[in-house]
């Protein structure tokens, strides 16, 4: 049986080696997108203790409102969300966000469709804090027709729906560049190395070096100076992109701060409870081992 054991050992060794090799060099799919990265100054909300920077969320909301909202819906958000705890316009004086004057003011700037309850006629009225963000297009067909056939995705949970989250949004917005020579870009399309895609069929160069990234219908939406920040922050492309990415991160995960704070308390409690239970275990089992 000695030989059987050696065979077993050798096979284990070979298999472990194969697995390690396989995991150490992840397969690269054709094309693939460039790895998303954070802005230079980082994001305030990363890490177990990270929280949203309210000033940044306010600036990000302005970028969304003035640029993104022209094409992108945010169907899951209501105006009241803006004034909720940890939100962009939260004010501790107004625990109920529906009383928050800033939120009320923002809502009143929008018109929403409704039905006149007296006559049954279709009307529009000023939005209230409980209304959802109105979508820029009445339906997806209209959205596609206005955007060269591509429907701009809803942004409510975009940071959770893309690998890389807020870093992806930031990288995409700042990452547009001229396509490398040999890459054919169709009319109305734009090259971006961070957009997931496979450019093999549009590439006339060396088939082993297909450029990373993909093409999308959205033209570079942001440029320096496009949005004026009320707090005087310099309106560079990077600043606008970082701020709107932070705003979208909040929109996708508005309870993240509460979640992390709760988590710290839960882990501290469990640690204490573990210590007590382990001590009881040692006491109960003394002499039995």
């Amino acid at each position: 049986m000695k030989s059987l054991k050696t065979i077993g050992l050798k096979t284990v060794g070979a298999l472990i080696a194969a697995t390690v090799m396989a995991s150490a060099v992840p397969a690269l799919a054709a094309g693939g997108a460039q790895h998303a990265h954070e802005p230079k100054e980082g994001f305030s909300f990363t890490g177990p203790f990270g929280t949203y920077d309210q000033a940044q969320l306010q600036r990000g909301y302005k970028v969304y409102r003035e640029v993104c909202a022209a094409c992108h819906s945010m169907n899951l958000l209501s105006f009241r969300n803006l004034g909720e705890k940890d939100g962009p316009f939260y004010d501790p004086k107004f625990k109920n966000p529906n009383d928050n004057p800033v939120v009320k003011q923002i809502a009143s700037e929008f018109e929403v469709a409704d039905i006149d309850s007296e006559t049954g006629d279709a009307i529009t009225r000023k939005a209230t804090t409980s209304d959802r963000f109105p979508a820029p297009f009445p339906n997806t067909a209209a959205a596609a027709a206005s955007n060269g056939g591509a429907v701009p995705p809803d942004l409510s949970v975009i940071t959770k729906a893309r690998h890389g989250g807020a870093s992806y949004v930031y990288s995409l917005l700042t990452g547009y560049k001229a396509p490398p020579a040999g890459l054919k870009i169709a009319e109305g399309q734009h090259y971006n190395p961070y957009f997931p895609g496979d450019l093999t069929s549009a590439w006339s160069g060396d088939h082993k070096h297909v450029p990373a990234g993909g093409v999308l219908a959205m033209a570079p939406p942001l440029s320096a100076g496009q949005v004026t920040f009320d707090d005087g922050r310099e309106s560079t492309l990077s600043h606008q992109a970082a701020d709107v990415a932070a705003f979208l991160e909040w929109a996708g995960e508005p309870k993240a701060t509460l979640r992390k704070k709760t988590g710290v308390a839960v882990l501290a409690y469990l640690l204490l409870f573990f210590g007590l239970t382990y001590a009881s275990y040692r006491m109960v089992w003394r002499g039995k081992h």
Binding site: G263, L267, L270, F273, F274, T277, S280, Y281
Partner: peptide, 16 residues
């Protein structure tokens, strides 16, 4: 008590 120790450790991982 032994199960308790393990369950709490497991809940710690779960919570992370």
């Amino acid at each position: 008590v032994k199960d308790g120790v393990a369950i709490i450790a497991f809940l710690f991982l779960f919570s992370v």
